[in-house]
Design a protein around this nucleic acid. Structure first.
Lengths: 216, 216
DNA sequence: GTCTATACATCGATAGAC
DNA sequence: GTCTATCGATGTATAGAC
């Protein structure tokens, strides 16, 4: 009682501080860009000195790694919730809804998205642990593609690997163009995010089985 | 004779030095990433001191600006040459050929592409002059879209603005995914660049007029 | 254990000598 | 046109107070 409890409190407090560092670091990235993150600015906003941060993160790249993992973990949670909320009666509508959630999260988190989808930080490569939620989300995405195939929306003999690559390409294209050319536009009226229904429809039609083509 | 000639030589030599700075800066970006460019490294590789660079470029952002313009100017020249080489007898083949040239240049210039298509440098925004070749290339691209429409490959009442946005989105998506996930893969066998025929076909089919749909 | 204080190297940038 | 000298800011790391 006199030993375990304080240790837990100490650990919890340490974890809270770690979360605060990540919160502030995300704010700095939002203001200065991903590559504009500096430990000094994080420490300044927290009211501490830069060396104190080394008690929680082993340098700047470790902080990037934690931010990379947090971003993918949040996006994974959002996508899992959206997947669970799918009605299942209209797979095409579910597909567009899921892609909408994905793109919306990306453009509404412009501080995280470049770190997660591009490689803006020289010398930083995410660790396998930080990659884990991204891998899990890819597994989820591939499972939904199989559902689309089994539901008759994709051709029965479709190459799921090719389909997955074209899907990530067109979706990441919408995100990249919106973030690079008009990051201030909201999702609803964005010049590129507003093309998402078109893009999803063209992707689906291209990989559709014969029974779903307009001519049938 | 004793005045004009030396002045020309001086100007020419100065221009040669400027080009050398850009060459070396491009090498540094290729090695260290776009954000990893430093004036010290450029000066070191040129055998001069960092302050000497200020005689040619007004700071680091001006160097980025010149690199941004040079990249778009090169890409514009490549695209103009490809456009002139088009046979014109098969517009769909010409389209794929042009997009192939575009994507190939991007993935084969990984040092320039992020600077041109993303925003990896905090605090840097390209000047209107540096944007000029990019604007010219967009004009060229829109003109070709009108040709596709007049040639019957796109619907007669197609929204050229929307078509242009979806086109840039899907093409930049292929480039972004290839550069971010497998930058070392060559264009021919890249996991994402190899989907380019699929992506171009799905884009074209989506915006095609009725006479070009498979059912006709 | 956590923090402050401090030192060190490197970066972009400017001023002024030659 | 190039250099030295120098500045402020930054990332990294160590020493030592509490």
């Amino acid at each position: 009682m006199t030993e375990a409890a304080p240790l837990d409190r100490r650990r919890r407090r340490r974890q809270e501080t770690i979360e605060e560092v990540l919160d502030v670091a995300a704010e700095v990235m939002a203001d200065q860009g991903v590559a504009g993150l500096t430990l000094g600015e994080v420490a300044r906003r927290m009211g501490i000195r830069p060396p104190s941060l080394y008690g929680y993160f082993d340098g700047k790249n470790a902080l990037y790694d934690a931010l990379f993992e947090r971003g993918w973990r949040e996006l994974l949670a959002v996508m899992q919730a959206a997947r669970a909320a799918c009605a299942g009666t209209d797979l095409a509508a579910d597909l567009l809804a899921l892609e909408t959630v994905f793109v919306r999260w990306a453009v509404e988190h412009p501080a995280f998205a470049p770190l997660m989808f591009w490689r803006p930080v020289p010398g930083f490569a995410p660790s396998p642990a930080a990659y884990a939620p991204a891998v899990e989300l890819e597994r989820l995405s591939r499972a939904f593609l199989a559902e689309l195939r089994d539901g008759g929306l994709l051709a029965p003999d479709v190459d799921l690997d090719l389909v997955h690559r074209t899907q990530t390409a067109v979706i990441s294209g919408v995100i990249s163009q919106q973030l690079a050319n008009a990051p201030e536009e909201p999702f609803e009226t964005g010049a590129f995010t507003s093309t998402l229904p078109d893009v999803v429809a063209m992707w689906l039609a291209h990989h559709a089985g014969a029974r779903n083509r307009p001519s049938d």
